[in-house]
């Protein structure tokens, strides 16, 4: 059974003074739709942040701006001391620091699991195949899926695919991991294996920003929960505080909706 008590915080300490990500006054538009409204957010090294909120609130858009999968209209994004400019070189240097896991896994269907993981090591870091495979195997082992290394993505279950996607991102040794609803596309019986993998990462001190509605996960690993609606962060609190006593009306309504059936 999944243990929902808070993790041992001693092993998950946050460096209070080392800022890893700094978003300042981010504005994002999709045509005439104002998707992110003047958002600022600072994430310290080792922090684990859960973003939640109703559909269309801008949570996915927000994390997708951090590695420039979405371009912002104005504001500044700084990751690991590098400020993002609108050129390929600057974007690539930030993407090297940021790993991302998607809702729909997005493994490359024509590549074996081991090649899914070693591709970027070879292409981006210029490693030889055998050198890259050593690293790929290390992270596949870490997500407990090494025995599937020579299979193709379609031969794995959803949960296994998502764990491979996590390993693939970890291979690049990012400073921060972004999770965009990593369990939303999974069958219920596969959610746990993915959450356990993410909890393991948190225990190892990985800085994480997760868009998720897994409230058990949020309670267990998050330092902060950010509630978003209409492109704004309406509430920011420690998980216990947020879940037991949400302050904002929208947050109360949202929690009422998602907890109604739990």
């Amino acid at each position: 059974m999944q243990n929902t008590s808070p993790l041992n915080t001693a092993s998950m300490s946050v460096s209070e003074n080392e800022t890893l990500i700094e978003l300042k006054n981010i504005n994002k538009w999709f045509g005439g739709f104002h998707a992110l409204k003047d958002i600022s957010l600072t994430v310290n090294k080792g922090e684990r942040i859960v973003l939640c909120g109703p559909s269309g609130s801008g949570k996915s858009t927000l994390i997708r701006c951090i590695n420039h999968l979405e371009a912002i209209k104005d504001g500044t994004i700084t990751v690991a001391g590098k400020e993002m400019a609108n050129d390929a070189k600057s974007i690539d240097s930030i993407r090297r620091e940021v790993g991302m896991v998607f809702q729909s896994f997005n493994l490359f269907p024509h590549l074996k699991i081991i090649d899914n993981c070693s591709l970027a090591l070879r292409r981006v870091k210029g490693m030889q195949r055998d050198e890259a495979e050593v690293i790929a195997r290390k992270y596949l082992d870490r997500v407990h899926i090494l025995e599937q290394a020579d299979k193709y993505p379609a031969q794995l279950s959803g949960g296994q695919q998502q764990r491979v996607a996590i390993a693939r991102a970890l291979c690049m040794e990012p400073k921060v991991m972004l999770f965009d609803e990593p369990t939303s596309a999974l069958d219920p019986e596969m959610v746990k294996e993915v959450l356990d993998t993410m909890i393991g990462l948190a225990q190892d001190g990985m800085t994480m920003i997760c868009v998720t509605h897994e409230m058990g996960f949020a309670r267990k690993v998050a330092n902060r929960v950010l509630f978003m609606a209409d492109g704004q962060v309406l509430e920011e609190a420690a998980p216990d505080e947020f879940f037991s006593a949400p302050k904002h009306e929208r947050a109360k309504a949202f929690l009422g909706e998602i907890l109604a059936h739990n």
């Binding site: 590695n67 999968l69 993407r95 090297r96 940021v98 729909s104 997005n106 490359f108």
Partner: peptide, 15 residues
């Protein structure tokens, strides 16, 4: 090809 494939490559830093 689904957009997610291209995004996954971009997120890994591929040109």
């Amino acid at each position: 090809i689904p957009r997610g494939q291209i995004e996954a490559g971009a997120a890994l830093g591929l040109s």
